[in-house]
């Protein structure tokens, strides 16, 4: 892992993905580049008292002159309020890269399952770009992504395009409050895992709410998946 550095970055773009999620694009000011691994996060100072909040980087690590963050507007804590009120051109102070939620380069895991709820999909976007586009990883990779409402999904076009371009990648959005016309998985992500054929020798990467992580890790333990094949990042 690369040692973290203190850095300054400037807000370059803001994309309102839907009523609940925004994407912020930052350009590094000092230093000009940042090396990180897909799955790592930045720690941003969000007030004068020194409070910091952590946000996973969502872009391909190949892009080293800036980074993209996903912000969940609910609940509107101090981190969300600070970032939501930034204007284009404003600078932020951060420490990065941080975190150990990364896919091992050794490919010891024969297949990968990425399991997320809500904004927990953020590190997986970086991992998918890195594994598929940069590393040219040929392993089967499946993303299960749980969301309460279909209108809160985002990046769906990107994931579908990746699935078309890379046949070894499979994408399963799961909606817990789905309307009748929703034809894909509904319920919890564990419900979706039950209806798909899963390779329990694979590596499992889980990111999202604590209850979801508890459910999925218990489910995988029942299936005798070794602990060292289960990696998770709790969101809080």
């Amino acid at each position: 892992m690369v040692a973290p550095v203190k850095a300054w970055a400037r807000l370059e773009n803001r994309v309102d993905l839907n009523e609940r999620y925004i994407q912020l694009n930052f350009e590094l000011v000092e230093p000009h580049t940042l090396s990180f691994q897909a799955g790592q996060y930045v720690s941003i100072q969000v007030d004068e008292a020194g409070h910091r909040r952590s946000y996973s980087i969502s872009n391909n690590p190949e892009i080293d002159h800036g980074f993209e963050l996903l912000i969940d507007l609910v609940p509107a804590g101090i981190g969300t309020q600070y970032l939501q009120n930034l204007k284009l051109g404003d600078t932020i102070h951060l420490v990065a890269p941080l975190g150990v939620f990364t896919v091992a380069r050794t490919q010891i895991e024969p297949e990968l399952y990425l399991i997320a709820t809500g904004s927990g999909v953020t590190p997986f976007r970086a991992m998918l770009f890195d594994l598929l586009q940069t590393q040219r990883d040929t392993r089967q990779i499946t993303l299960f992504w749980g969301m309460r409402k279909v209108e809160h999904l985002f990046w769906v076009d990107e994931f579908q395009e990746l699935a078309e371009a890379f046949p070894q990648f499979h994408f399963h959005p799961v909606i817990s409050q789905a309307l009748k016309e929703w034809e894909l998985c509904r319920g919890r992500v564990t419900d979706c895992l039950l209806v798909h054929q899963i390779n329990y020798q694979a590596g499992f990467y889980i990111c999202g709410s604590t209850p979801m992580i508890t459910d999925v890790t218990a489910f995988l333990a029942q299936k005798s998946v070794p602990k060292d094949r289960v990696h998770f990042e709790k969101f809080f």
Binding site: M1, S43, V95, L98, G99, V100, K234
Partner: peptide
Amino acid sequence: CIGAASCVAI
């Protein structure tokens, strides 16, 4: 502690 390891990195 959730083992995020930011303290170890810094």
